[in-house]
Amino acid sequence: MTLITILLVAIVIFTSRYLFLEGKLPLRLGTNARDFLSFSGPAVLTAICMPIVLVKDEQLNIAISNPYLGAAIVSIIAAWKTGNIYWTVGLGLLVFIAYGSL
């Protein structure tokens, strides 16, 4: 039974990923639709990221003592100045760990 449920969930996930890649789907995207969709990357990725940083146990935590916030600020500065994923993640994690040992 669990395996059947797993299979059905897998079908839902796959459908959501594959559906619009199918050329036979009668759908033409105009310029406006494509412009709109060009914002999907920054929009959805930010929406995944920010609650991790600012929400803890269903509470807003914008104090500088929040390790996620302090480390995220350092990561944002590193990303802006270096544009390099290793510096961004490395410096952020370093600050995050430093918070833990304070």
């Binding site: 914002f39 920054p42 929009a43 930010t46 991790i52 993640v89």
Partner: peptide, 29 residues
């Protein structure tokens, strides 16, 4: 889980080159 936040920051920040993307990121946040 901070690691996933940091990697996404690394991928988002360099794409902020126009006002429209900046507004997108702020509203999404």
């Amino acid at each position: 889980d901070f690691a996933i936040a940091a990697t996404f920051i690394a991928l988002i920040v360099p794409t902020i080159k126009t006002w429209s993307v900046l507004v997108t990121v702020i509203v999404a946040g």
